[in-house]
Amino acid sequence: MTPKHTLVALVEDRPGVLNRVASLFRRRGFNIHSLAVGPTEVDGISRMTIVVDGATTQVEQVEKQLYKLIDVVKVSDLTHDRMVARELMLVKVRCNNLNRAEVVQICELFRADIVDVGESTLVIQAVGDEEKLEALLALLKPYGVREVARTGRVAMARGLTSTSVEAEPPDIHLHHMRVGRRPERRLPYVSD
C-alpha cells in the first residue's frame, strides 16, 4: 500500500477552483482519498484538506502542480509534521427498544453524540481520526447501519507552524471582494 499524504491548500474562494484542483489530480493520475473544503480565518480564502495516495516524490510533483494553479495561494504537506487530523461522521443505525441502550453505551465509549432519535433508528455523530471512526463503525455494524456520511479529513499542524497567506494590497483586495471572487449571481460551470 502506498502511504497517504495530507496536503493543505489555501485557495481563492472563486468559482471553478474546486474544478481546477480536481481536474489536476485526475489529469496527473493521482487518487484523491478524501477532500474537504471550507472557509478560513481570511476573507476570500478557502482551505482544502486533500488526502492522497502516492510516493513522496510524486506528492512533491502534485504540490508543485497545485502551486501552478493561479487560484492556489499556498500548499503544505502536513504528513511529516506533528498534526491534528480529524473527521466528522454521521451514522444512521437501526435499533429497537431492546438494544437501544447497548448502542448508546457504545456511543459513550467513543464520545460520540446521539443527534437524532427515531422509533427504530438513531443518528450518531462522531468526531475523531479515521481509525477511531472505523472502530466505531465496526461495532455498530451488527445493529444494521443504514447510512454513513463522512466529511473527510481536516488537519492542522500542532504548535506554531501554520499554513496561512499574505494579505493582498488594500485596493486589490477591495476589487477582489467586490467582484469575481464572490459573485452574487449563481454561476454555472462550477462544480463547487
Binding site: E12, I70, D71, V165, P169, I172, H175
Partner: peptide
Amino acid sequence: WPEEVSVRGY
C-alpha cells in the same frame, strides 16, 4: 484602468 496587477497565487 487598473494601474496595478497583483495576484497572490502567482
